[in-house]
């Protein structure tokens, strides 16, 4: 049996230990997959990814990466486990140049800086000409490129993204999703949280649907797209995501 790269087991977490938002969530991400976590507002999607990233304390359950227990690991040490995380907002250092953002990404692997930079620029060629600009001067789509590029500079095996299409036009969101496919193709496993369910599931292998801090549905992406219960959880109606 194949062991998951990321295994989340029965996790209870939240912003306040006495008021957990997640109530016993379990989740697996296998090597080479794109896994999307979906759910309505307040379902606990971002809380889950923040808890994995060590930004929120886990009061119960465990998180393992490649069999190593990383429950409660300090956020700044996560990158050493080759796990990178791109938050939803404020995900670039706006006053620093694009090149400086990329250099910060390679903080723990400076010997590989040139090689990683070349790989990132192969994926996002636009970053080459934007290199000297302050990241805060860029458009939303360009910023997202910088954020993902900086995360990839650490040569992660697992990339976690919190709503990578948030605030982007549908066209730009499609560009970001197609870039994520390319990221997967270079061997990076992806776990993302998304509101843009249909577009996210289209590029995903599997998905989880959360509601009220609990897992409601899980399965391969195609089955979730066709699942009327998923549409209900999102839209509050019997809409089918596949038809939207």
């Amino acid at each position: 049996m194949v062991e998951p790269m990321l295994a989340v087991r029965d996790v209870e977490a939240g912003y306040n230990p006495s008021l957990p938002i997640l109530h016993g969530i379990s989740l697996d991400v296998f090597e080479g997959e794109i896994v999307t976590v979906l759910g309505p507002n307040g379902a606990g999607k971002s809380t889950l990814i923040k808890a994995i990233a060590g930004l929120l304390s886990i009061s119960r359950g465990s998180v393992t990466i490649g069999g190593r227990d990383i429950t409660g690991v300090e956020t700044h040490q996560l990158i050493r486990e080759r796990v990178a995380y791109v938050p939803q907002t404020e995900n670039v250092f706006a006053k620093l140049s694009v090149e400086e953002n990329l250099a910060l990404g390679a903080l723990h692997n400076p010997d590989q800086f040139a090689e990683q930079r070349r790989r990132v620029l192969d994926l996002f060629p636009d970053l080459e000409r934007l290199g000297h600009l302050a990241a805060g001067k860029l458009s939303g789509g360009q910023r997202q490129m910088v954020a993902v590029g900086r995360a990839l500079m650490a040569d992660p095996t697992l990339l976690m993204l919190d709503e990578p299409s948030a605030g982007l036009s549908p066209k730009l969101a499609q560009v970001v999703f197609s870039q994520l496919i390319r990221v997967k193709q270079v061997g990076v496993t992806i776990l993302m949280v998304e509101q843009n369910a249909r577009a996210a599931l289209k590029i995903s292998d599997r998905g989880y649907v959360l509601a009220e801090g609990q897992e409601k549905v899980q399965g391969d992406a195609r089955s979730l797209l066709d699942n009327p219960e998923v549409g209900e959880l999102y839209l509050g109606a019997n809409s089918r995501l596949a038809r939207s």
């Binding site: 990233a53 930004l55 300090e74 956020t75 700044h76 040490q77 996560l78 990158i79 050493r80 995380y85 938050p87 404020e90 995900n91 670039v92 250092f93 706006a94 006053k95 620093l96 400086e100 250099a103 910060l104 990404g105 903080l107 723990h108 400076p110 900086r150 650490a154």
Partner: peptide, 24 residues
């Protein structure tokens, strides 16, 4: 220097700095 960049990063966004592996 790398530490200088890290200091500017923490000054701007301490949470993102931690996420990025910077030892605050």
């Amino acid at each position: 220097t790398s530490m200088g960049r890290q200091m500017r990063a923490v000054s701007e966004n301490p949470t993102l700095a931690r996420i990025n592996g910077i030892d605050v």
